[in-house]
Amino acid sequence: MEHIISLTLENKFGSLSRVAGLFSGRGFNIESLSVAPTLDPSVSMMTIVTSGDDRIIEQIMKQLNKVIDVIKVVDISENEFVERETALIKVHTRPEDRAEALRIADIFRASVLDSSPTSYTIEVTGDVRKVQAIIQLLQPLGIKELVRTGRIAIAREPTRHAQAQPRPLAKAN
């Protein structure tokens, strides 16, 4: 099963290779990986999409925790979360296809970043299904280049607190 793991790690030389090396050395899957610094420049956030049965995911979590540069590990996909991925798609467009390409971009609320007589560069952001869907639709036109950021995800805040809050207020009144 697919899992999205969120890592807080030291923003140090070699940290990325320690995490990546762990996955290759122990034969775990990485479907996508993205990493960037956080508000605290000494810390990076990494989002890893991986897959495996419960036993493998348990090992992945434990092994990641064991890496000394890793500060915190959370399996985001255990609870409610939102995820996004951005893709830049350079579509080859013959004159008769240009309108169709724009129409598809419009349907997916994607934007055109660059245009040349024979191509459009389209930016799309969404969950993984949306990104895959637009790629599928654009493919018949001819995709010249495709760059994806990999998926990033963040846990949803629990909604219960918001509902519970009015109660003490009502009491006070």
């Binding site: 030389f13 070699g14 290779s17 320690r18 090396g21 050395g25 000394i68």
Partner: peptide
Amino acid sequence: NTGLSRPCTKYNFL
């Protein structure tokens, strides 16, 4: 050295 030893040390420093 740090690359070579990464998978066979608990930790390494340069």
